[in-house]
Simulated assay, not measured.
Amino acid sequence: MLTNKGKYGLKAMVHLATVPEGRSVQAAEIAEANGIPKAFLDTILLELRKAGFVRSKKGPGGGFTLARPPSEIRMGYVVRTLDGPIAPLPCARRKTAQPCDDCQNADHCSVRILMQDVRDAMADVLDRTTLEQMRDRAASGIDVGDYVI
């Protein structure tokens, strides 16, 4: 499940993708434009910087910029950086699956099997979608249901 941290991180990345190349943006501007608590955004931007998605510059004219072109940033990597594994339940994680307390046989659990399919579908969409596509989709007003990746 996408947390607020993941959601705000995606909003911040899209905001940065709309900024003309060579210009940086203050965290306060991103926070205000997207309804994100500034202190929380500071933490998120630090994680995104450490992961190599954004750059920061201090001083006059400083702020945040993307570290790579939007066409080279896949949303799955951003979500995993901020939220960890993409899975609706811990038992459906690919590498760090944790059985549920009430599960009697994980190999035959219909809920876990379904949630693995959900995980795979979510990961497929996120891993195929670039920041550029996400930004352009929002700018054009195309509904996700009408968009073919």
Rank of each mutant, 00 (worst) to 15 (best):
A33V: 10
V19I: 15
D127A: 01
R137A: 15
V125N: 01
K95Q: 06
P60C: 03
K58H: 08
L48N: 02
F64T: 00
Y77Q: 05
R137S: 13
Y8N: 11
Q26P: 01
T43R: 08
Y77W: 06
A106P: 15
T65P: 06
D42L: 13
N4H: 03
D102F: 11
G6A: 10
A121H: 03
V111H: 09
Q133W: 04
V144H: 01
K50R: 12
K58T: 07
S56A: 02
M134G: 04
C103A: 07
T81S: 02
A27F: 12
G141Q: 07
D107S: 13
K5F: 05
L16R: 00
R49D: 13
D127K: 02
T65V: 13
V14L: 11
K5Y: 03
K5R: 14
C103E: 12
G62M: 10
Y147P: 02
S56R: 10
K58V: 02
S71W: 12
M115I: 03
V111R: 06
V78R: 00
A121F: 00
L41Y: 04
V25T: 15
F53T: 07
K5T: 15
M134T: 13
P69V: 12
T129Q: 02
D83V: 06
C100P: 09
S140K: 13
K5C: 08
D117W: 13
E47F: 09
K95S: 13
P90H: 05
G22R: 11
A106I: 11
L66T: 11
M75Q: 03
A123E: 12
M13A: 07
D117L: 11
K95E: 15
M122R: 02
R119F: 08
L114N: 06
K58M: 05
L131M: 05
D120Y: 00
G84F: 07
L82F: 05
A17S: 15
